[in-house]
Design a protein around this nucleic acid. Sequence first.
RNA 1: GCCCGAAUGGCGGAACUGGUAGACGCGCACGACUCAAAAUCGUGUUCCUUCGGGAGUGAGAGUUCGAUUCUCUCUUCGGGCACCA
Length: 835
Amino acid sequence: MNKYNPQEIEAKWQKYWEENNSFCAEDSFVKPKFYPLIEFPYPSGAGLHVGHPRPYTGMDIVARKKRMEGFNVLYPIGFDAFGLPTENYAIKTGRPPAEVTAENIANFTRQIKSLGISFDWSRVVDTTDPKYYKWTQWIFLQLFKHGLAYKKNMPINWCTSCKIGLANEEVVDGKCERCGGEVEKRDKYQWMLAITKYADKLLSGLEDVDYIERAKVQQQNWIGKSEGASVFFNIKDCEEKIEVFTTRPDTLFGATYMVLSPEHNLVEKLKDKINNFADVEDYINKAKLKSDLERTELQKEKTGVELQGVKAINPVNNEEIPVFVADYVLATYGTGAIMAVPAHDERDFEFANKYNVAIKKVVLPPAIHSSYRNADDIAAGAPSSIRVEADCFPGEGTSVNSDFLNGLETKEAKEKMITWLEEKNIGKKQINFKLRDWVFSRQRYWGEPIPLVYCEKCASENKGGNEQNPGWFAIAESELPLELPQVEKYEPTDTGESPLSQIPEWVKTTCPNCGGEAKRETDTMPNWAGSSWYFLRYIDPNNDKEFASQEKLKYWMSVDWYNGGMEHTVLHLLYSRFWNEFLYDIGLVPTSEPYKKRTSHGMILAKGGEKMSKSKGNVVNPDDVVVEFGADTLRTYIMFMGPFDQAVEWDTNGLVGVKRFLDRVWNLQEKINNGERGMGNEERVEKLIHQVIKKVSDDIDNMRFNTAVAKLMELSNEVSKAPFISQKDYLEIVKLLSPFAPHMAEELWAMYGNSQSISQEKWPEYDEAKIKEDTITIVVQVNGKVRDSIDVPVEISEEDIKVQVLALENVKKWLEGKEPKKVIYVKGRLVSVVV
RNA sequence: GCCCGAAUGGCGGAACUGGUAGACGCGCACGACUCAAAAUCGUGUUCCUUCGGGAGUGAGAGUUCGAUUCUCUCUUCGGGCACCA
């Protein structure tokens, strides 16, 4: 018998799989399909890191098992290659980003292939390939044509030292990531995508999909739907009104003051009425100067200034109430103004105390539960939900001091107030979202060019574009892809514009509408663009007529199982769902939701629990592990380390145990006895194998890879102790191991006369009857303590077992002659004797 | 501050719908093989113990014949959101 030599075996089988297209999905449309997906990597110059193989291997195991179960599996891979690190590297070295990207992709490909992941390499997509981004641009144009893309004046992050615009990701703790310089906001016209129009759909769509709970909650929070009312407050002796949004219209009688955000345009309009305008202006200017960081850091202490001479009128009781400007009110949410109810909102409470504004209670907390009447009880153990601790009560209860709402529960009070407001025409039911529209422009080179042109003549004639942006036109579809031009320098310009603006011959074009002179948009798309639809392109990656054929989309969509990092559950997941839902609405994809199921893997940390990073020098390169131990050991170890969805610490010592396990399985060949059976162990081994089939199958379906490996280890240990194993049983074990250690499994499978790849074999099935034991061990407890255990036949009756148990010496001893008060029998588990 | 998640031997981690806590692996100890070492194989490995037992899953209570599992309070750690009215 040869020694297990992973390096030799792995190269051999990787070559075999490639030559035989073993893992290419078929566009047969006959077999049931299964479409698993992992997040495609960004091909960085640093190469693969041991974190990458975790999701790839996990889904690979699922994919391989599904193939063996008869599914037509599409398990694709690609590269999300536009991005800042490559662009920055290009700036530093002067090399074209495309060239650097090609090199990095080649390196990533080599590394991933060395892991034996069953990706369909015939469908690789690269977001920077013009053949790919042609369709990214095309989809953007559909969004534009349907009025979902518009240009708006928005603040960007401006590094005062590098004199360039930064993406949000480049701003770390309010400073420039590269130079550490100050970052300020500068206004710039940017393309926006109206994702807010899909807020409701993005929210309700979550009901029908199987995402891990955390991902759903995060998306819900991000979308941030809140239901309430908008209410108009009149201003005394003035035509102007203040519109506010509130989720608690039932507390309107308790509104004792109002607040405008510093950016609110009403301040300027009321200038003449404000007696202390100089103070107000001063406050507003100071607020503007505060960076985002300062605003959040200084949140502990609320500040504001009263607009003296201005009084608002509470519409429910006509009381005159003061109006403040304060930066704890955000300009970007709701109407940028609030009605303040200090008795029932903690922020308003704090502010009212500081500025001496009246506090009026209009909601009583619900009755305290009778079992917790006593104050000491409450302090000791009442659930926090029924405790009342402060003078400010933000919860729900019963309305008081509120005229026609008195005595109503919060829910009813809200409804009644909304009806009243609507009847009087001073307010209405209103739903607000936290979700903002998506800033889609980047002043960068290494991204997809935005395929729009601006014609000044048409703009002046109010042609094209949309209401906000006349003069903008989509380029003709025949001109797609609009390729990135070659440039000399990749640096952003002094004005914060994209480097593309420095190429006059590229910028200058003709207007698709009037044929006159026009200018191209010089901003590029953000990183998120290419990854917002890549799962659709995998289905038909070489199609040059459509982004994917309808027939193929109908067969393959939606993605059955998408696994990715928690860091992408908000933006990437939301953006790609948005694009898919849009494409569904215009009839181009068959399902509204792109992903049926979403799971998440935990990070692999360096020893000591730190993140692996280049600067700390603690990155483990999978190449080294493959060379030393082999890919099968690496794969199996990564799966064995710990629960798939939790962070785990890398430990090179752990690899040793897994290598020993694989060696042992390999060496089990010595135990194969072809001729002889009947050595007395077959039945036991068979039973064990059936138990393992069940366990491993269930565990893979639930991503409990660590316990699946443990069970396989247990099986191999058990078999090692047996005198012989039949070839049939041995190969059954090899099949079960094949998704984890595919190279070794192929080698062993071939060694015993099989000419076809093990990946074509049927996944083992278990027989429930063979799993069952004939005798079971019943645990005996006396007064809750384990005192003995007995082996009894499975079908023993309750009476019989009770008699047997009470006759046990160990039980008699603990009974001390007393009669048992109660004897409980839990079928197949235990007998509990209570004295 | 709010919302999630977690806490189990020396370490990573198991334990189905409440039913023998510590599977599996690392490490460690002893033994076999060896001149020796490595590798491999075998045995043991939660703690205390007067060897009868006793204690034990972050802490404290509760429900139960029985709680790592359910309820409540608290502590610590990790993640997300962060003045969203």
